[in-house]
Every structure is written in structure tokens, then in C-alpha cells.
């Protein structure tokens, strides 16, 4: 229809080059239409579940967050038409099979590319927030920390962190705390004696001070 035609047109012109042939673009759009919610211009929760199933992944797989980041999803279970079509098109991808290959690539990156992991991780904070929310409930945070970081930084370190949050921390998680945790984990991962030589006077958020104090108290008793 007219809207689709318009989208097709502008997308190609603004990019100045063709990522997809007219025909491929057509099949990308019909793929979107297959999953999109009736009467809306986005893929909703049911469509998302179906789409991920067709990509042969579990909904709980952390790679779904990478996919959400790639498609600039603003909210769980929502893929907007423009973002969906544009981002796949820019990648020159139009079929479900190629999409699966791309997602498999994300999966490898999550395992061995710290910069990529950080990008998906930082995205996740905003992705998980409801409208007007500024902080993340600690239970939600713990769930996603385990999901995203356990594999990369190690089961043991992440479970120590999550236990600390469960037992000792009484507040919701701020964006700064979320982002700084990744750097904290990364340093902990790389440096021997990181906890022993941790300096409370350094720029870490005070939450990390509390965590280190908690760890030291635990190991000394």
C-alpha cells in the first residue's frame, strides 16, 4: 500500500545506495507483516514469540537482547516497523534464514567480544525500564545480570554480586550503578587481588565500596 511504498522509497533514497533489491525488500516487508500485530504498525508480544521461535532460539536466550538492541527496540516484545525494516535492510538481510545467521553471529560476539557485550548490556537497562521509570527494581536487575554477565565474567563472581544485592542492598538500581558494574566486573576479571587492593577512595560508586566491604567481611570471618 501507499505507506509501504513510501517507506521503501525514502529508505532507499536516503541511504544513497541499495542494500536490498526491490524484490528482497518486498520479502523483508512481508516478513514483518507476517509477525506484526493486527491493526498496529509493530510486532507485538505474540509476534515476537513466534518470530524468535522461527529463528530457532529460546525467548530466554540473552541473544534476544542483542537482537532487540540491533533492532532498536524500546520495550520488551515490541519491534517497530521502521526500525525493523531499516536495520535489516542496512545489513542487507531479508530472509529468516539470513536473520538466523546474523543472530548466531551475535551469540558468538556476546561470548568473546567485551565491547559488544557492553553495548548490549548498557542497552538492556533502558530497555527494561517502564515509561517514566528511572531505576530498575533489584530483582529484575539480578535476573538480567545473571542472564547477560554470568557466562562472560564467571558464575562465581556474578553469584557473589547477586547474593550481595539480594541480602544487603535495599534500593533500586540506577543507570550509573548498572553501567559501572560492567566496568567493575571487567576489572575484577582482569586483575589479580582486585578485591584485596580495591581503593574506596577511587571513583567507583559507593555501592561498589559496600560490596567490597561485604566481601572482605565474608572472607575474614
Amino acid at each position: 500500500d501507499a505507506v509501504e511504498a513510501y517507506l521503501t522509497q525514502t529508505s532507499m533514497n536516503s541511504q544513497g545506495q541499495n542494500f536490498l533489491t526491490q524484490e528482497q525488500k518486498g520479502s523483508l516487508i512481508s516478513l514483518f507483516n507476517k509477525y506484526k500485530q493486527d491493526g498496529e504498525d509493530y510486532i507485538g508480544i505474540d509476534g515476537t514469540i513466534q518470530y524468535i521461535e522461527d529463528l530457532e532460539f529460546e525467548v530466554e536466550d540473552p541473544v534476544v537482547l542483542a537482537l532487540a538492541e540491533f533492532l532498536e527496540s524500546t520495550q520488551m516484545g515490541v519491534f517497530e516497523r521502521a526500525k525493523f525494516v531499516n536495520n535489516w535492510e542496512k545489513a542487507g538481510i531479508s530472509s529468516i534464514h539470513e536473520m538466523r545467521q546474523k543472530v548466531l553471529e551475535f551469540q558468538r560476539s556476546l561470548e568473546n567480544d567485551e565491547q559488544f557485550l557492553k553495548k548490549v548490556y548498557d542497552f538492556t537497562f533502558k530497555f527494561l525500564l517502564d515509561n517514566n521509570q528511572r531505576t530498575l527494581l533489584k530483582d529484575t536487575a539480578v535476573e538480567y545480570w545473571k542472564l547477560l554477565l554470568s557466562h562472560y565474567f564467571g558464575e562465581e563472581k556474578m553469584s557473589q554480586w547477586c547474593q550481595f544485592i539480594n541480602d544487603e542492598w535495599q534500593f533500586a538500581i540506577t543507570k550509573d550503578q548498572w553501567q559501572m558494574l560492567f566496568l567493575f566486573m571487567s576489572e575484577w576479571n582482569q586483575k589479580d587481588n582486585f578485591i584485596e587492593s580495591y581503593d574506596e577512595n577511587a571513583a567507583w560508586p559507593s555501592m561498589m565500596d559496600t560490596f567490597v566491604e561485604y566481601l572482605r567481611a565474608k572472607t575474614s570471618s
Binding site: 528511572r134 531505576t135 540506577t174 543507570k175 550509573d176 550503578q177 559501572m180 566496568l183 574506596e200 577512595n201 577511587a202 571513583a203 567507583w204 560508586p205 559507593s206 555501592m207 565500596d209
Partner: peptide, 25 residues
């Protein structure tokens, strides 16, 4: 205490008065 000051900094970051740059600034 440094801890008190850091808590105030945390809060100001949260309120978007401050932003972290280059890790320790």
C-alpha cells in the same frame, strides 16, 4: 567521609547534574 561524598556524587549523577568521563573524572 569519602563515602559520604561519593554518595552525594552518585545522587548527582542520578539527577543528571554530573556525568562520568574517562573513568575517573
Amino acid at each position: 567521609s569519602v563515602g559520604d561524598i561519593k554518595k552525594a556524587i552518585d545522587l548527582l549523577i542520578e539527577k543528571e547534574y554530573l556525568n562520568r568521563v574517562d573513568g575517573d573524572s
